[in-house]
Simulated scan of single mutants.
Amino acid sequence: MRLLLTLLLLLKLSLAQDLYTEFIRSQVKEIPLNKAIVVGKGKRELITFINPDCGHCRKEWQALRPHLDKVKVYVFLLPFRSFPESHAKSYYIACSKDKLKALDEVLSGKFDGRTPQVKECPLVYEHIKIAEKLNVQGTPYNIILGSYKVIEGYSPALLEHLGIR
């Protein structure tokens, strides 16, 4: 009897995980990847929502950055609502000609305490709308394409889940 209950519980968990994966897969279909800031040329793919002033996002970027030959990252910017500096940094990244350089500069802290003087960038508002539609509440928020695994917050295991460590 105990074995039967254990098997039923495992089956229920497996079905729940399958449903969750299908839910994430359906949500990913709604994400306009052509609106993302795309960096990297790898075969593995990651969608990430980041905030330029988020310490965990910066830590994650430092972990991902050396592996851009193995992973393609679709970056969506999600600035803090009430922090103008966060918005300015997002505008700087989104409308920069060299987005990889801009990501490196902002996420390394180059503009901390001295906001970049840039115009508003409409792409940032599109990113915010996409995040709202997906109900993304915090950053970093990651979806690994292929497995449709979601990792909320910084995780040192992200590279393992991507299969690059």
Results as ranks from 00 to 15, higher is better:
residue 120 E to K: 15
residue 81 R to H: 14
residue 86 S to W: 00
residue 149 K to W: 01
residue 18 D to S: 12
residue 148 Y to F: 11
residue 44 R to L: 07
residue 19 L to H: 06
residue 141 Y to N: 12
residue 25 R to Y: 01
residue 95 C to N: 12
residue 3 L to T: 12
residue 165 R to N: 10
residue 157 A to D: 14
residue 73 V to I: 15
residue 53 D to I: 03
residue 110 K to I: 04
residue 161 H to N: 14
residue 22 E to Q: 03
residue 58 R to C: 12
residue 18 D to E: 13
residue 127 H to T: 08
residue 14 S to G: 14
residue 56 H to L: 06
residue 143 I to V: 15
residue 105 E to S: 11
residue 108 S to W: 01
residue 45 E to I: 07
residue 91 Y to M: 11
residue 104 D to S: 06
residue 78 L to Q: 11
residue 43 K to F: 04
residue 148 Y to E: 02
residue 82 S to A: 14
residue 34 N to Q: 13
residue 21 T to G: 02
residue 130 I to Y: 05
residue 73 V to C: 04
residue 115 T to I: 13
residue 162 L to N: 12
residue 48 T to S: 09
residue 23 F to Y: 07
residue 127 H to R: 12
residue 124 V to A: 05
residue 30 E to Y: 02
residue 157 A to I: 01
residue 31 I to T: 07
residue 6 T to S: 10
residue 28 V to G: 03
residue 74 Y to N: 10
residue 98 D to K: 06
residue 46 L to I: 02
residue 130 I to C: 11
residue 71 V to L: 09
residue 138 G to Y: 01
residue 84 P to V: 02
residue 118 V to K: 12
residue 132 E to G: 09
residue 134 L to V: 02
residue 84 P to E: 10
residue 37 I to K: 08
residue 27 Q to K: 15
residue 20 Y to Q: 02
residue 63 A to L: 13
residue 14 S to N: 06
residue 134 L to I: 01
residue 59 K to Y: 00
residue 140 P to N: 06
residue 25 R to W: 00
residue 161 H to L: 10
residue 114 R to F: 09
residue 10 L to H: 03
residue 124 V to K: 11
residue 58 R to V: 05
residue 110 K to G: 09
residue 148 Y to S: 02
residue 135 N to T: 10
residue 84 P to K: 08
residue 49 F to P: 10
residue 111 F to W: 07
residue 140 P to H: 09
residue 38 V to H: 05
residue 6 T to R: 13
residue 52 P to F: 00
residue 56 H to D: 13
residue 70 K to M: 11
residue 61 W to G: 13
residue 43 K to T: 11
residue 50 I to A: 13
residue 25 R to M: 00
residue 40 G to K: 07
residue 68 L to G: 12
residue 84 P to Y: 01
residue 69 D to I: 02
residue 95 C to A: 11
residue 56 H to G: 04
residue 97 K to R: 14
residue 163 G to E: 03
residue 149 K to V: 07
residue 35 K to N: 12
residue 146 G to N: 00
residue 5 L to P: 03
residue 87 H to V: 09
residue 98 D to A: 03
residue 67 H to P: 08
residue 82 S to F: 15
residue 125 Y to T: 13
residue 117 Q to Y: 06
residue 110 K to T: 03
residue 148 Y to P: 06
residue 150 V to D: 04
residue 15 L to T: 05
residue 5 L to Q: 12
residue 145 L to A: 08
residue 94 A to P: 08
residue 132 E to V: 04
residue 22 E to H: 02
residue 153 G to N: 02
residue 7 L to N: 03
residue 38 V to W: 00
residue 71 V to S: 10
residue 107 L to G: 12
residue 154 Y to E: 01
residue 27 Q to I: 00
residue 147 S to T: 08
residue 124 V to Y: 05
residue 117 Q to A: 15
residue 9 L to T: 11
residue 48 T to Q: 13
residue 151 I to V: 15
residue 9 L to A: 14
residue 47 I to V: 14
residue 76 F to D: 09
residue 4 L to I: 07
